Simulated assay, not measured.
Amino acid sequence: MEVHDLMAQALAHVMAQVEASKSDMAAYAARYLTSRHRDNPSKGCPIAALGCETARQSTEARVALAKGIQARIEQFAESMSTAGMDDERARRAAIGGMAAMVGAMILARLTDDKAFSADLLDETRAWITDNAGGQRS
């Protein structure tokens, strides 16, 4: 088996866990955008940890990661639609929220300034809560 096949299989396995961990976007962001997640990339989100590298991998690896991203976005959008947000706005908020979470995590990991890193996580979490129609904790 080639390395590309192994990576695709590993990503497919990890991203399949998306189906098992349904959550609304604000609750997910509260768990995702934390210093614990930031400081433990090997135990966290494969999108933030491997997304840039996966873009240079096989089609199979990219498809596996993309399917997981799409599934998570669909779950977020469905949760917001069920809570009363119109479908188009829910999808836009889900895509924006997912992109914001992953981007914030990557940026928070890039900086050596812990206060700025914490701001990136905290302010993105607050923004997602505001745009997902959730309650701030």
Results as ranks from 00 to 15, higher is better:
2 E>G: 07
3 V>C: 15
3 V>P: 10
4 H>T: 14
4 H>Q: 09
5 D>F: 00
5 D>G: 01
6 L>R: 07
7 M>S: 08
8 A>M: 09
8 A>T: 03
9 Q>E: 10
10 A>C: 08
11 L>R: 00
11 L>Y: 03
13 H>Q: 14
13 H>T: 13
14 V>N: 11
15 M>T: 03
16 A>V: 05
16 A>M: 10
16 A>T: 09
17 Q>P: 13
19 E>K: 11
20 A>M: 14
21 S>G: 15
21 S>M: 14
22 K>S: 13
23 S>C: 09
26 A>Q: 00
26 A>E: 00
26 A>V: 05
26 A>G: 04
27 A>H: 05
27 A>F: 02
28 Y>W: 13
30 A>I: 08
35 S>W: 04
36 R>A: 15
37 H>W: 10
37 H>D: 08
38 R>T: 05
41 P>K: 05
41 P>D: 03
42 S>H: 12
42 S>A: 11
42 S>I: 07
42 S>V: 08
43 K>I: 15
43 K>R: 12
44 G>F: 02
47 I>P: 02
49 A>W: 02
50 L>Y: 10
50 L>N: 05
51 G>I: 03
52 C>P: 13
52 C>T: 15
53 E>V: 12
55 A>F: 03
56 R>Y: 15
56 R>K: 12
58 S>W: 05
58 S>Y: 02
58 S>T: 11
59 T>L: 12
60 E>I: 03
60 E>W: 04
60 E>V: 06
61 A>W: 02
61 A>P: 00
62 R>W: 04
63 V>K: 08
64 A>N: 01
64 A>S: 04
65 L>D: 00
65 L>V: 01
66 A>R: 10
70 Q>G: 13
70 Q>M: 09
71 A>P: 01
72 R>G: 04
74 E>P: 07
75 Q>G: 12
76 F>I: 02
78 E>G: 15
78 E>F: 07
78 E>K: 08
78 E>I: 10
80 M>D: 01
80 M>G: 00
81 S>P: 14
81 S>K: 14
82 T>V: 10
82 T>N: 09
84 G>Y: 06
84 G>S: 06
86 D>V: 08
87 D>A: 15
87 D>Q: 12
89 R>G: 08
89 R>N: 12
90 A>E: 02
93 A>Q: 01
93 A>H: 02
96 G>K: 04
97 G>W: 00
97 G>R: 00
97 G>N: 00
99 A>G: 12
103 G>M: 03
106 I>L: 05
106 I>K: 05
106 I>C: 07
109 R>N: 10
109 R>V: 01
110 L>T: 07
110 L>V: 08
111 T>F: 07
112 D>G: 13
113 D>H: 11
116 F>N: 13
117 S>P: 11
117 S>F: 07
120 L>R: 02
121 L>Q: 05
122 D>G: 13
124 T>L: 06
126 A>T: 12
126 A>E: 09
127 W>K: 08
127 W>M: 07
128 I>P: 03
129 T>N: 06
129 T>C: 11
132 A>S: 09
134 G>R: 02
135 Q>D: 09
